[in-house]
């Protein structure tokens, strides 16, 4: 459904952040993109959604294809209409809008009133807490509720693919588990495809069908969740009790060279 081939991203004309990144997201799956802070995960998502434009970033090489069409260079508001919706890192709810107004804005690109109404109810059934708070300003919600709201906004657009950037950031473990459970449910019931960016590999791999690990602007390892979990280096990262060296940086460099150019 989505494929990135040797994508290179440069910020401010000089800072090279993605250095030939390739990955694929098959339809209907949850694909996890893991990596430590600063690896370039958010940049990857912004390259796909087009939001890179707003940060002086540019895809300078490679191709991003969605449903067989090249989408790099298309403005972000049109990419949403093609069916890709990014839930940005840090939730980014419209704080001085109410919960319900946020949800309405999520459906901005659609005009089928009946469908919008139905989907609003769907959001409330996934996240009953939002329904209780629907008249509240979203700035006063807890972090977990804001994350639920950010996901609801995405659902309202009826996207084919949701790019979910670090939903666990700053949330209590119990809440994170709840949200991941709902993501899995949405994937199964609504058939929405997810590209899930996380630092919390354990949780992400628990719901993902496939995983990529990236470091320093490149994919260094990929495979089924089982394979990634059983990999010694990955294990060391998230099972290694010592507390030292908790970084993907210690991962051996597994990059297959230019696999997309044959």
């Amino acid at each position: 459904m989505l494929s990135l081939k040797n994508v290179e991203v440069i910020y401010d004309d000089v800072i090279l952040v993605l250095k030939g990144l390739s990955l694929e997201v098959p339809e209907g799956k949850i694909v996890a993109l893991l990596g430590s802070n600063g690896a370039g995960k958010s940049t990857t998502l912004k390259a796909i959604s087009g939001l890179l434009h707003t940060e002086e970033g540019e895809v300078t090489d490679g191709v991003i294809e969605f449903l067989g069409q090249k989408i790099n260079g298309i403005p972000p508001e049109q990419i949403v209409r093609r069916g890709i919706f990014q839930v940005m890192e840090g939730r980014r709810v419209f704080e001085d809008l109410t919960v319900e107004e946020n949800i309405v804005v999520g459906g901005y690109t659609r005009s089928d009133r009946a469908g919008l109404k139905r989907d609003m109810e769907m959001c409330y059934s996934y996240f009953p807490r939002l329904k209780e708070r629907r008249k509240k300003l979203s700035g006063y919600l807890s972090g977990g509720e804001q994350q639920m709201l950010a996901i609801s906004r995405a659902l309202m657009a009826r996207p084919k693919l949701i790019l979910l950037d670090e939903p666990s950031l700053g949330l209590a473990p119990l809440l994170v588990r709840e949200i991941f459970g709902i993501v899995k449910k949405i994937n199964e019931q609504e058939k929405t495809t997810f590209l899930l960016v996380e630092q919390n590999a354990n949780l992400a791999l628990a719901i993902a069908h496939y995983g990529y690990i990236m470091e320093n602007g490149r994919i260094v390892l990929d495979g089924d969740p089982e394979k990634l979990r059983s990999n010694e280096d990955v294990k060391e990262f998230y099972l290694g009790g010592g507390g030292e060296a908790k970084s993907y940086k210690n991962l051996k460099f597994y990059r297959r060279r230019k696999r997309w150019i044959s």
Partner: peptide, 24 residues
């Protein structure tokens, strides 16, 4: 109105508004 709500959303953050598919 949807346009009115979208205007308020854009006032809060242009980038997030774009991510909703709003043409800023």
């Amino acid at each position: 109105s949807r346009a009115g709500i979208a205007m308020r959303a854009t006032a809060f953050s242009q980038q997030v508004a774009l991510s909703m598919g709003i043409s800023v």
